[in-house]
């Protein structure tokens, strides 16, 4: 991956990529699996850094971050300055290593010892009018089999045709969400009633 591509992905996440370059980059990502995977890593780390304070990492999060860091070619593209809230933008490679290491440390700090997997978590306010994202209690001890996942995906696709347009979009995003998009619910704690 070239520095130019990294710069473009950084700018895309910052919302600063010129319109004429967005289409080209998106088409490239659609074709290039490696680029797609790397972009996912950036988004994951960026989301982490955008949630300072009060955050509990979900189950498996530290493992995912470690896996990303183990790739060795991943630099967080859209880190936020913890004091100003401004995006730091792309960092030079040497600094990127430092930030990446810091991310791993942050992931360790964010995992509260003794928290149940996928336990209820809170995230700091994102911005005006927007609320914290709440997690749901999940039982990750027994993931659905591929056949079960496919059956549920089929149900959701069929259901989406009877949802409102905004509901259909939400259902579709659920189907597209990468694993572990499907999580079994620990029912007693999930219902919260």
């Amino acid at each position: 991956m070239t520095d130019q591509i990294r710069e473009q992905m950084s700018a895309l996440l910052d919302g600063e990529l010129p319109q004429d370059q967005i289409g080209l980059l998106v088409r490239r990502m659609e074709r290039d699996t490696e680029l797609k995977r790397a972009f996912g890593s950036y988004v994951l780390i960026g989301e982490t850094l955008r949630a300072p304070g009060g955050t509990t990492a979900s189950h498996g999060f530290a493992t995912r971050v470690q896996a990303i860091l183990a790739d060795g070619n991943t630099a967080p593209p859209a880190a936020l300055d913890p004091h100003t809230g401004r995006r730091l933008g792309w960092l030079k490679p040497a600094a990127a290593v430092v930030v990446a290491a810091g991310t791993a440390f942050a992931a360790v700090l964010l995992m509260r010892p003794g928290d149940p997997p996928g336990g209820v978590a809170t995230v700091a306010q994102v911005d005006e009018g927007s609320s914290a994202i709440a997690d749901f209690a999940a039982d990750d001890s027994a993931s659905p089999t591929p056949a079960q996942s496919q059956r549920l995906a089929g149900y959701l696709v069929a259901h989406s045709q009877f949802a409102t347009p905004i509901g259909r979009r939400n259902v579709w995003t659920s189907v597209l969400a990468q694993d572990p998009g499907i999580a079994r619910v620990a029912y007693e704690t999930a219902e919260g009633l």
Binding site: L12, I22, V26, E30, F39, G40, V43, L44, E47, S58, G118, A121, V123, I133, A134, D135, A138, R169, T173, L176, A177, Q178, P180, G181, A183
Partner: peptide, 16 residues
């Protein structure tokens, strides 16, 4: 459009 779909467990960028 390009959008980010996020919950606390994951975040993905999608195109519609």
């Amino acid at each position: 459009g390009l959008f980010t779909h996020s919950n606390l467990r994951q975040s993905e960028t999608m195109r519609i």
